Computed example of a mutant assay.
Amino acid sequence: MFWPLTLLGALAGLLLASIPGALLGGLLGQVLDRRLQLRSWADLRLRMGGKPVLGEQELLFVLLGRLAKSGGAVRPAHIQQAREEMRRMQLDGPAQQRAVEAFNRGKTLADDVRRSLQPLRGQNVAAEGLLCACWRLVWAAGQVPPPARELILAWGQWLGWRRAAVLALEAPYVRRASGVVRSADAELEALRLLGVSSEASPAQIKQAYRRLLSRHHPDKLAGAGAGAARLREATEITSELHRAYALLRQRRSLR
C-alpha cells in the first residue's frame, strides 16, 4: 500500500525543517491519506479530478442504470429490479425520485464512477451490498451480457476485491446452467415484470399491465418527440409486456 500525501508531507517537512519536519509532515500526510482513503497516486489524481464523489445511494442507482444499458437496451426486468432495490432500501417519495434520476443518468455514462467507488475500498459490507445489487439487476433479465459482467468485475477491482471474490457473489443469482426456465419460474418472471405479487388478483394484474403499457408504449413517446433509440427501447419493453401478460392470461385464465 502506498500513501501519497504521507510521502509528500515527509518530503515537504524535510525541505523545511530537516528530519523533525519530515516526521511531522509524514504524520500529517498519513492522517489525510487515511481520512481521504488515498492508497496510490491514482487515488490522489481521482480526488483532484474536480467532479463530486457520489453518495452510496446515488452511486448504486447510477451503477444499476449503467448496467441496464450495457446490453444495448434497458429491459422492463431491469426497471422492475431497480424498483425492487428502492423497496429494499425503503426509500420515500423524494428519495425514490432521486434514485430514478440517478438510474437514468447512469445510462448516459456521465458520472465518474471509479472516483466514487474509491472511498468504499476497505468497507467490505458496503462494497458487498453494492456488488450484490449489481448482480441482482443483471440476472433479473435472465442472462448477463458480457459487457455487464466485465463492468461488475472492474468495479469490484476498483473496490479492492479479487475477481474470484466478485464472481462468488454472483452464485446465488445464477439461473440454471442450461438456461432453461421452468414453467413456475416463467410465471413468476411475468408477475415480477408487471410489478405484482403471486397473490395478485386478475384485476390487479390487468391494471398493472395497462399502466405499464401506457407508460412505455412507443406511440406515446413518438408524440412527445422521443429519439429513435428511445423508441426502439420502448418497442422492446412493450413486446416483453405483451408476452408476460399473454403467459399470465394462459396460466391464470384471465379474461
Rank of each mutant, 00 (worst) to 15 (best):
A200T: 03
S183V: 15
D219M: 08
S178F: 08
R39T: 04
S201R: 12
Q123S: 13
R215V: 00
L109G: 02
A203F: 09
A42C: 05
L63H: 08
A73S: 00
S201Q: 12
A186H: 03
G55T: 13
P20R: 05
A102Y: 04
Q157F: 09
S183D: 14
E85G: 00
F103H: 02
V166K: 06
A82T: 02
T238W: 01
L212V: 01
L221S: 13
M48A: 14
R66D: 12
P52S: 14
L15M: 13
L120Q: 13
Q81Y: 04
L15K: 01
I19W: 15
I237W: 03
R39C: 08
V196E: 10
R252Y: 07
A99W: 01
D185K: 03
A203D: 14
Q97A: 07
S214L: 04
A73Y: 12
S239C: 01
Y173W: 14
E128L: 12
G195A: 08
L54W: 04
L131N: 12
V181G: 06
S197K: 03
A82P: 00
G13E: 02
A82S: 05
L221G: 11
R210M: 08
S116A: 07
A186M: 13
D185L: 09
V31S: 05
R211S: 12
A102L: 11
A12R: 02
